[in-house]
Design a protein around this nucleic acid. Structure first.
Lengths: 193, 193
DNA sequence: TTCTAAAATGAATAAAAATTCATTTATAAT
DNA sequence: ATTATAAATGAATTTTTATTCATTTTAGAA
């Protein structure tokens, strides 16, 4: 007998991300998806029971992968500023390298596919980063005349905006610019300010 | 003879924005739209030739309205900081009050409906705000060791993030918080900083 | 008040998209 | 090498959704 080809699942996911970043979830059809993945439409249904299941699984997979990337390598850093810098760069690089995925995730939040549980999970995945900020303030590393949560939002918002403009080609980032961007964020929140 | 009812156009737009914010452009159907607007499906086609035309017109309308709101009341302000504060609050309040519209606009950018021209226009609408920043730097109001464009992106990114979390109920803003948020943004970019 | 032309309706139809399935193909086991 | 079994295929079918249209209703003109 013939065995299932795990590579096909990857091809299906990849094709879905690619097409959705062009035409949105609105524009994705199973026929286009199969063509992009170089498969027959029926084959897609061997791996995924329905379009809904496919979209759901893709969301969960991407969300988890993203969360892992954010905190990667943070424990290796020697001090708080370096840890924060690691997270800053992780998130920025993630939003650039996996931009298509970010587009999908954001569309999914406002689609007929999302469930309550998934929406909760989304918020939970941000928690480790917010915790890092709280920890920073507890250890007297951050200015105390500013709401930690507000710092956190400035931090994230800036990164998203930077990545978005970079991908569109309107504000191109190199490694030096990225570090400069982090320094500006740091100035804003550091104790000595 | 009977005359066209302009109010119905408003109802159609309103219903579209409302439904899209719940289920995305992906989930919008003409049947649901008509029901939400309390009209027969056929009636929608009297006012809009097709679903595509409807979505297109809605986009153009909302984009223009949004652009007008951003700069509103700015000329009345006496100094640069006050002008910038006006724009900050305009944009923040816009993203909160018209959150559903913002969701639609962002989905539209990545949908099968958008055209090249429309994408260009989007960028053009941001220009006046960027110009204000350039003007500020020319007049020596802003620190000169930081890229104006980067300041601009921090400014916008923070606002978007704030508004997004406020709407989800994760970071609630009152008028005091809004002004505090502006002060933090200002600290970051002002000359003396 | 009557007439008329356009709006409004929603069931009927057409078009598009999701899903199935009879058939073919490939490969693991013997 | 043969066989058995599940994968792969894509045309056929079903389902969903957009659009049309015959009919009814409405409001302005005569």
């Amino acid at each position: 007998m013939r065995i299932r080809d795990e590579d096909k699942i990857k091809r299906i996911y990849k094709a879905a991300i690619c097409l959705i970043s062009e035409v949105g979830i609105a524009g994705l059809t199973m026929a286009k998806l199969a063509k992009e993945a170089k498969l027959a439409t029926g084959t897609v249904y061997i791996y995924f029971k329905s379009k809904e299941v496919l979209i759901n699984k893709l969301f969960t997979k991407l969300q988890q992968e993203a969360a892992e990337r954010f905190m990667q390598g943070m424990e290796k850093q020697s001090n708080f500023k370096q840890q924060l810098c690691r997270v800053f760069l992780n998130y920025l690089n993630h939003r650039i390298k996996y931009h298509d995925e970010s587009v999908f995730l954001e569309q999914y939040y406002r689609s007929p596919y999302i469930t309550k549980d998934q929406l909760q999970l989304t918020q939970a995945l941000k928690q480790p980063v917010l915790d890092l900020f709280h920890q920073g303030q507890d250890n007297d590393e951050l200015r105390c005349d500013m709401d930690v949560h507000m710092m956190f939002l400035m931090f994230l918002g800036f990164i998203r905006e930077l990545a978005g403009e970079h991908v569109l080609g309107f504000y191109v980032l190199d490694e030096k610019k990225k570090l400069e961007a982090f320094e500006r964020s740091w100035e804003l929140i550091e104790k000595g300010g």
